[in-house]
């Protein structure tokens, strides 16, 4: 699309906001960009699915720095976009500031809770999905040592690691779980070089299954795992296709569903608190033609049974973010 075209589109949207007619929804991606092959891409897929099914169009932006967040929300709100969906916890602070200024606009934030009347907060039970793939890792491992590479060291990522470790230990109480974080700045989401070195270090410690919850860094983790002939586990989106036959599974976090739901509900978006877990298929594991040979019938049966228990409430997975501690892993 040419600039001119978009420019006209933009001014048209501005004109629309005056009449407050039916407006397009908008999605704001986080710093990794919409082609990060995991979290943001999952959000993007949800938006695309909505666009293909309804034939509608939506506005989108990939921000390049934190300072743009507030500006981006405001610009979309002023242009009349509704609802406005934000992927990523970092949007919480600017949204808290801005939401009250646009009471007629509905917002959705994924991965964080913002308490405002016109905001829908979607959070996922990542610990439950991580528990399931942790079980699979333990069953697939021959060395009894498995590992985890996290992106930025924040409570959210520790929640993944903690659920994963619990799943591993549930299958094999003797197993060793190695957990490393890539860094403490947002750059840790996009550092495949370090992700790959961390993986090699874990392999030298005996790991033969590695779970990456690290955004763009995970690309390096999966690549190195494939190069070194060990198994890996993808995250957020289904990443099995990246290295067919070498990715054990992917911990699915249905960000796409969250975006799709918000877009479908449109302006009449149901606001409030929304938890997506194993019970309502918000998280899970991926099974497709690329990993069919890796997942045995035993494995699938055990994991499905655990999933049913979690959904029924008979199996409780500890949530790291509830008390910032983990019974299965020390950080």
């Amino acid at each position: 699309m040419t600039v001119m075209h978009k420019l006209l589109g933009a001014s048209a949207a501005l004109a629309l906001s005056a009449g407050a007619a039916a407006a397009d929804p908008a999605i704001l991606f986080d710093l990794g960009g919409k082609f990060d092959k995991s979290f943001n891409e999952s959000a993007y897929n949800g938006a695309e699915r909505w666009a293909t099914e309804t034939g509608g169009s939506y506005a989108e932006v990939e921000i390049q720095s934190d300072a743009q967040r507030e500006q981006a929300i405001r610009r979309f709100a002023e242009s009349g976009a509704n609802p406005i969906v934000m992927a990523g916890f970092s949007w919480a602070t600017p949204l808290e500031k801005v939401a009250a200024d646009y009471p007629d606009t509905s917002f959705t934030i994924i991965d964080m809770v913002v308490d405002a009347p016109n905001v829908r907060s979607v959070v996922f039970n990542e610990h439950e999905g991580s528990y399931l793939v942790g079980m699979m890792a333990a069953m697939a491992s021959e060395t009894g040592t498995v590992s985890f590479v996290g992106g930025m060291d924040i409570p959210l990522i520790r929640k993944f690691a903690c659920g994963y470790a619990q799943g591993v230990l549930a299958v094999n109480p003797e197993a060793t779980v190695i957990a490393n974080m890539t860094g403490t700045t947002p750059a840790a989401w996009n550092d495949p070089v370090k992700g790959s070195e961390l993986t090699l270090a874990q392999i030298s410690q005996g790991s033969d299954v590695v779970f990456a919850a690290a955004g763009g860094t995970g690309v390096g983790v999966l690549q190195t795992a494939a190069d070194s002939n060990i198994l890996s586990i993808g995250v957020d989106a289904n990443q099995n296709y990246l290295h067919p036959g070498q990715v054990l599974t992917s911990m699915l976090k249905r960000v796409d569903n969250a975006v799709y739901d918000a877009f479908t509900q449109g302006e009449a978006l149901e606001t409030g608190f929304n938890v997506m877990g194993v019970a309502n298929e918000g998280v899970g594991y991926a099974l497709d033609e690329f990993n069919a040979d890796l997942v045995t019938a035993d494995m699938q049966a055990a994991v499905d049974a655990a999933a049913a228990d979690i959904a029924a409430g008979t199996l409780a997975v500890h949530d790291y973010s509830s008390d910032e501690s983990c019974p299965a892993l020390t950080f």
Partner: peptide, 11 residues
Amino acid sequence: AELALWTSIPR
């Protein structure tokens, strides 16, 4: 910043 918001020209 406006370019990045409304066009495909990166910031």
